[in-house]
Write a protein that binds this DNA or RNA. Structure first.
Length: 1221
RNA sequence: GGGCUCGUAGCUCAGUUGGUUAGAGCGCGUCCCUGAUAAGGACGAGGUCACAAGUUCGAAUCUUGUCGGGCCCA
């Protein structure tokens, strides 16, 4: 007995019951325990930040993250799933600031960093409950109890270990980074914030002369003598192009354009495009000479309203090295004429010369770009490029910067500007330039410029800040080598977006001048400035003279604070401001103390450290082994925006830390240090070296497969936005359709990497198409199996035959089941959920619309014969296997089916469970399994092939403790599959033909002719004429060879076969084929197995595979054509056929009435029919048929004694009918 | 502004190494079925595969450019 399904089944409600069931029986935990000792499938959870409500996009990520671990678990692997939370970072601080109504760092400091970081902790866990609830409700099985948290002490110390390791290898260094800087607030702004603050403003637009140095004068003539050997190979001596001749004594200027005159004080270089054409022009009005891009001569002349005559041109490359006078001389004393040795020999001056650049814009300006590295990212990068050319590398050229962090000019600037806000200096600078004859032209332009989104009048400036970097660029090749081994889905990520990012890798700017983050564990000697890294709190506290005592708290800051407020989370010990109090004796200078640098680190470093930090590696006991067993991950998945976030973080950090030295692309220790890093106090401790050595491996990329998800858009195609209310909340979907519906929609509706709209209707459709249809089949089985007392147990009165002995339809659906299983396994092994889901959907369609429909009579008939039991066993086996097949996709409904199909078995098992304690569960479980097996063996005396097809294991407590089904090749019959497809095709064509003739299926027809395109399956089809006849309600089905009266033929080449064979001749072959008599050609192919055509005087023989014969119905016949052939129906109706039609019509009305009156399926009725004599005569003639079809015990012609009569139309007749029980 | 990516039916999306009738579901229309019923089914209409050029015997598919959307970066 199977538990009857409720009259009104609710997926959402059933899911709640399954959730409770899983939790009561700890199914997730058991699914892990059961695989203890099995090979691992490693999954890494990318930590979400829980400071916002989860939306459908998060559901998609979590659904995908659930699917494959569930599948792999069922395939016998141990898939631990540790949850995690990302808790640090600027977004959290911004949230808190919003809440507190503050913005600047000063405001945070005056609010109190202690209070602030506690607010951050609260904020970051504000929506944890909602996230956990969503996670649970969606059926994402993940270990939330033991989630890693990035701000926890253990995690932070792991991250510290990584940084210490890199610091000691010289891979962590200080440098500059140009940021969008809010000077008044003293902070950098994130890209997102900057994007918010763009406004249209008026700015000065000035054309300025950079006068080419007099020293180059000599060159003008030297050039003609060939060679620019000049100053002994010193670049910047002024290599004037040979062809450029300027009269002696005439000044030549590089013409530059800028909208930020205040940056001219800090000018360092002038940049040209090496491949760009430049012109030497003569200003006839003033008799001056300028150099500008050739393409901009015209526009510039127009702009400055002068006549410019081109004297000569050259490529920008020829200008490189040319020196000019700085527009302001405040740095001239320190830099003028200073040169330094280059890596490839020779020397070059440190400033004010022409350098090559690849970003020259020929739309605006002059094609020569003023470079001020402190105030522009591209400018700064260019400085970096220049620095690299020198022997001294990063330290070869100083950064020119005349601006203080507060946005005012510093004391290096000319006195007139000192202490003034930079933008306020523009006017005076322009005036000075004009006075000095350096200004060629001035105007104002309107353009977009960013302002601080929270202080509207504060313009942002680009500003170079001191920052800590990780030397990732040295590992570029190793990154690429590792990347090449990752299976990316979609594939193009590898060489596209991600590979591209790696190829252009720049050093990771690690530090943040903020409060809520992992503190950078670097301590600096207050005398010598020497530094060292610290790997854990214990290590710090063990340092000589270590203390966190402050003047205010002489006994230690932390202890005092903790005493003041015992609820202070202990994890905060390793955070600001508490960690900042720690000082210790400097190993570098007697009497000196070590103090921590103020920065925290980029929170992406936290997230990217999770492979080891989630285990507290290497400090936590056992963490070294734990980590080693769980690295790399077999599978991760996040959305596309994580390419440069988490995906990169994982890859780069583990490559830096764990790549074997000597692997491709990995710098040797010597090379690592070559970049001149701050010297560590001592070589790395032995312990640290051992740990790294233990963790190092050949396979340091941290994930083998990565599914990159597309973004989920709102219903209107825009980004999902709470404000726009353009999407449905996850909880609404869960309550209305259920989690399975949402999951199935994600898995089946599109490949996961397309960005797609989240439309409610699409979820409803996905549910209808798959879950509801499957439910109907399941319900059908449930109802009739109970009516017939079907017992799946082979010895309990429903005799079971091995599949091979069952009927064709049973063998067909079992074959489909196993073909589907094979396909789904293949696809899931390759992480391709979309085709797998599509195939399952097709299978359920075939099950419902062919197997069950074609089998209904077998379930309904009263005789309990073997045929009936075959049908039950088949459907039972199919549903049981299906419940396991769909378990990773729709875990809830899979469990509903599984538990129901288990029937009484469930209760027995649960009874055992309830009595046994935890320790004995596994054994009792085994015991049950053994008993089942024994019973199965006993019953299946037919042998092993039969045993293999014993219905899905019903021995497990939950479907999620089962093994994933395996395909049994013995049950797969490819030919039968092809033939059944053909039959379904032909039936479909027959229906089309009927529709054309406007003959509904209820009306029986005398005859149909079927003309097949190919003879292959003809014999088999003939045997199934009865089936086709029944489906089409046609008395007789004939297969016709001589079908010329119905069809015409067409022979066409199969280009896929013919193209490669004939190449350019292919069209001619096609033409020749068209010339042939189609009927004769078809005949030739059929009888001789080949067809000769003459092309270009050559006789070619085509095989049947190279020729397609198409059939086309002749006009005038009610026929339909398809790939398989043509179906022609005879439209003529005889009186007998019409009568039969009437009967079926009448039966249809009676059945509708039964349903309307809610009669039980098996209720017998008395039928009253009041109708015209003609119709009554028919009723009498077919009384037996009607009685049988409608379960009528009596048919009375006339009105019912009581109750209303229902008027119905039966073709042209009007009848009144009533039924009574 | 740069890189990557997408643009296929009214809508949401597939489209396997280029192969000549471009598919599915929904929606729409016509109809069927009703002893699976928050149903189900059949058939049909609907597409210059964003646009343009090129490569090829052959292009939704490859190349280039243009336009539009998205993401990341600037």
């Amino acid at each position: 007995m199977f538990e009857p399904l409720p009259a009104e089944f609710s997926f959402a409600q059933a899911e709640q019951q399954m959730l409770a069931f899983w939790e009561r029986h700890r199914i997730f935990e058991r699914s892990l325990e059961q695989r203890r000792g099995a090979p691992r499938f490693v999954f890494y959870e990318g930590p979400p930040t829980a400071n916002g409500l989860p939306h459908p996009g998060h559901c998609l990520t979590r659904a995908i993250k659930d699917l494959f671990p569930r599948y792999q678990t069922m395939c016998g692997r141990l898939v631990e799933r540790k949850a995690g939370w990302d808790t640090h970072g600027l977004p959290v601080e911004v949230e808190v600031c919003k809440e507190l109504g503050i913005h600047t760092k000063e405001e945070i400091e005056s609010y109190g960093v202690e209070k602030f970081v506690r607010k951050c902790i609260e904020s970051v866990f504000r929506y944890t409950r909602e996230w956990e609830q969503m996670t649970r409700r969606l059926g994402f099985w993940v270990n939330l109890e033991e989630a890693y948290v990035t701000f926890h002490q253990q995690y932070v110390e792991s991250v510290w270990w990584s940084l210490k390791t890199l610091f000691e290898r010289g891979l962590l260094y200080q440098g500059h980074k140009v940021v969008w800087w809010w000077a008044q607030g003293g902070t950098a702004l994130s890209a997102g914030e900057v994007g918010e603050g763009y406004r249209t403003v008026q700015d000065p637009s000035v054309y300025v002369r950079f006068v080419v140095r007099e020293g180059t004068e000599a060159r003008r003539h030297a050039g003609t003598q060939g060679a620019s050997q000049g100053t002994e190979g010193t670049e910047g001596g002024g290599a004037w192009p040979a062809e450029w001749r300027v009269p002696a004594g005439k000044r030549v200027s590089l013409l530059v354009w800028t909208t930020t005159p205040w940056t001219l004080i800090s000018n360092h270089f002038a940049a040209v495009g090496p491949d760009v054409d430049y012109a030497l022009v003569h200003d006839l009005a003033t008799d001056e000479y300028f150099c500008i891009a050739a393409a901009l001569v015209g526009p510039t002349a127009e702009k400055i309203k002068r006549k410019l005559e081109t004297v000569a041109t050259c490529k920008g490359a020829e200008l490189v090295g040319l020196r000019y006078e700085p527009p302001f001389d405040c740095y001239a004393r320190s830099l003028a004429d200073r040169t330094a040795p280059l890596c490839d020999g020779g020397a070059a001056s440190l400033a004010w010369r022409v350098v090559p650049a690849d970003f020259i814009d020929l739309e605006t300006g002059t094609g020569i770009v003023h470079i001020a590295p402190a105030f522009g990212e591209v400018d700064f990068n260019l400085l970096q490029d220049e620095r690299r050319r020198f022997v001294d590398g990063p330290h070869s050229i100083p950064l020119i910067c005349s601006v203080r962090p507060d946005g005012t000019m510093n004391d290096e600037a000319p006195p007139a500007y000192r202490g003034r806000w930079v933008k306020d200096c523009d006017k005076d600078i322009i005036r000075e330039l004009r006075d000095r004859g350096l200004l060629l032209h001035q105007e104002t332009i309107e353009h977009e410029y960013p302002f601080c989104p929270r202080a509207e009048n504060d313009a942002l400036i680009q500003y170079a800040r001191q920052s800590w970097f990780v030397r990732t660029s040295q590992f570029r090749e190793a990154f690429l080598a590792n990347n090449a081994q990752i299976r990316w889905l979609p594939e193009h990520i590898r060489d596209g977006r991600f590979g591209d990012f790696l190829r252009n890798n720049v050093d990771w700017a690690l530090s943040r001048e903020r409060y809520w983050g992992t503190p950078l564990p670097i301590w600096v000697c207050d005398k010598t400035g020497k530094m060292e890294a610290v790997g854990s709190l214990a290590e710090l506290m063990a340092k000589p003279g270590a203390t966190d005592a402050t003047p205010e708290y002489p006994d230690g800051l932390w202890a005092a604070k903790k005493a003041e407020d015992p609820t202070l989370p202990d994890h905060l010990r390793v955070h600001k401001p508490y960690i900042d109090a720690w000082v210790y004796d400097s190993p570098f200078a007697p009497g000196a103390r070590m103090r921590r640098v103020p920065e925290v680190i980029d929170c992406w470093w936290d997230a990217g450290s999770m492979p080891f930090a989630q285990w507290g590696f290497p400090h936590a006991p056992g963490s070294v082994e734990t980590f080693a067993q769980r690295f790399p991950a077999d599978f991760i998945s996040e959305a596309i925006d994580q390419t440069r976030g988490w995906f990169y973080g994982l890859l780069s950090i583990s490559t830096l830390l764990f790549t074997q030295p000597g692997s491709p692309g990995v710098p040797s220790p010597g090379e690592e240090r070559a970049g001149r890093a701050p010297a560590p106090a001592a070589p790395p401790a032995q312990e640290t070296r051992d740990v790294v050595a233990a963790a190092r491996r050949d396979y340091p990329h941290p994930y083998r497969t990565c599914i990159v998800l597309g973004h989920m858009m709102g219903e209107d195609g825009n980004k999902m936005s709470k404000r726009l209310r353009n999407y449905k909340e996850p909880n609404y979907v869960f309550d209305t359709y259920g989690a399975d519906a949402m999951r199935w929609y994600f898995f089946s509706a599109q490949v996961p990497w397309t960005s797609t709209r989240f439309v409610e209707a699409a979820i409803r459709d996905a549910q209808r198409e798959f879950l509801v249809r499957l439910y109907n089949v399941f319900s059908f089985f449930n109802i009739y199996a109970n009516i017939d007392g079907f017992d799946a147990h082979p010895t309990h009165g429903s005799p079971r035959r091995p599949p091979a002995e069952r009927g064709e339809l049973d063998r067909w659906i079992l074959s489909e089941l196993h073909r589907t299983t094979r396909f789904v396994r293949e696809k899931l092994d390759a992480f391709e959920n979309y085709p797998a889901a599509g195939r399952l959907n097709d299978f359920v369609d075939g099950l419902s619309n062919w197997y069950v429909r074609r089998s209904r009579e077998r379930f309904w008939k009263s005789a309990k014969d073997q045929d009936k039991w075959d049908a039950y066993h088949t459907l039972y086996e199919v549903l049981g296997t299906l419940s396991r097949l769909i378990a990773p996709f729709t875990p809830f409904f899979a469990e509903v089916m599984y538990q129901n199909l288990k029937g009484a078995e469930t209760e027995r098992h649960e009874g055992t469970e309830a009595r046994s304690d935890e320790g004995t569960q596994a054994r009792s479980h085994e015991g049950t399994k053994a008993r089942s097996d024994a019973r199965a063996r006993q019953a299946d005396d037919a042998g092993s092939s039969l045993r293999a097809s014993v219905p899905p294991c019903l021995r497990a407590l939950s479907v999620h403790l089962c093994d994933y089904p395996t395909a049994d090749p013995a049950l797969i019959d490819e030919q039968l599959a092809a033939e059944m497809d053909l039959v379904r095709d032909i039936v479909s064509l027959g229906r089309a033909a009927r529709t054309t003739a406007r003959l509904k299926v209820r009306q029986p027809l005398a005859r149909a002719e079927i003309v097949l395109a190919r003879a292959e399956h003809a014999d088999w089809l003939r045997e199934h004429a009865a089936l086709i006849a029944e489906e089409l309600n046609i008395k007789q089905v004939e297969f016709t060879a001589a079908a010329d009266q119905y069809v015409t033929y067409q022979v066409k080449p199969d280009f896929k076969a013919i193209g490669p064979r004939f190449g350019k001749l292919a069209p001619q072959v096609a033409g020749a084929l068209q010339q042939l008599d189609p009927a004769a050609a078809r005949e030739a192919l059929a009888s001789r197995g080949e067809l000769a055509v003459t092309v270009a005087g050559q006789v070619l023989h085509l095989t049947p595979q190279e020729v397609q014969v198409r059939l086309e119905a002749r006009p005038g016949w009610s026929a339909a054509q398809g790939r398989g052939g043509v179906v022609v129906v005879q439209t003529e109706l005889t009186p007998e056929l019409i009568e039969e039609g009437l009967v079926r019509e009448l039966i249809h009305h009676i059945q509708a009435l039964r349903k309307e009156q809610d009669l039980a399926y098996e209720a017998r009725i008395t039928l009253y029919v009041d109708a015209p004599d003609a119709l009554l005569a028919v009723v009498r003639r077919f009384e037996a048929t009607i009685a049988q079809e409608c379960l009528a015990t009596r048919i009375v012609c006339g009105a019912a004694p009581s109750g209303p009569m229902h008027t119905v139309k039966v073709e042209q007749h009007t009848a009144r009918i009533a039924i009574a029980t």
